[in-house]
């Protein structure tokens, strides 16, 4: 594979796929979060669900949202874009609402979801990710 020169790599066609370029980087990050959030929820629900049912259901919901966003980014096209747009929006609302609730009322929210304390347990990546995702999807508006 010959080394690409900078001029070759920076020009991005307008109709390039949603899941290429930065989109492919997002695909990896969303994939990692889809896996870790869902796996976490699975362990919580199967081993000690009765301790904090609401928080664990939210965990599962967060996992589902990350999976949907990953699939939307990977699929691309109008449908994939809409799927990714909706799930990234829910993700943004989720991290802000759950983050605020967990700070204000820590009793109801033990450190139990990816969104607790604005995702501090995950290096605040869950807080930054929806902004980057939405920016990328926004930038990738269909040409028409």
């Amino acid at each position: 594979m010959p080394e690409k020169t900078p001029s070759e790599t920076t020009v991005r066609p307008a109709d390039a796929a949603l899941g290429s370029g930065i989109g492919r980087v997002l695909l990896l990050v969303y994939g990692v979060f889809a896996l870790s959030a869902s796996a976490r929820a699975l362990v919580q629900i199967t081993t000690h669900f009765s301790e904090a049912p609401l928080a664990y259901l939210l965990s599962a919901f967060a996992g589902l949202i990350y999976i949907t966003a990953t699939v939307g980014l990977a699929r691309g096209g109008p449908t994939g874009r809409r799927t990714a747009l909706i799930s990234c929006t829910i993700e943004l609302i989720g991290v802000l609402v759950i983050g605020t609730l967990s700070v204000v009322d820590s009793g109801d929210f033990p450190d139990a979801t990816v969104w607790s304390n604005f995702g501090s347990g995950y290096g605040y990546v869950p807080l930054v990710l929806p902004f980057v995702g939405l920016w990328w999807i926004w930038r990738h508006k269909p040409a028409s």
Binding site: M1, K4, T9, S20, G21, I22, R24, V25
Partner: peptide, 8 residues
């Protein structure tokens, strides 16, 4: 390998 740009 699917992304032969800087983003790879």
């Amino acid at each position: 390998k699917m992304e032969p740009t800087r983003w790879g």
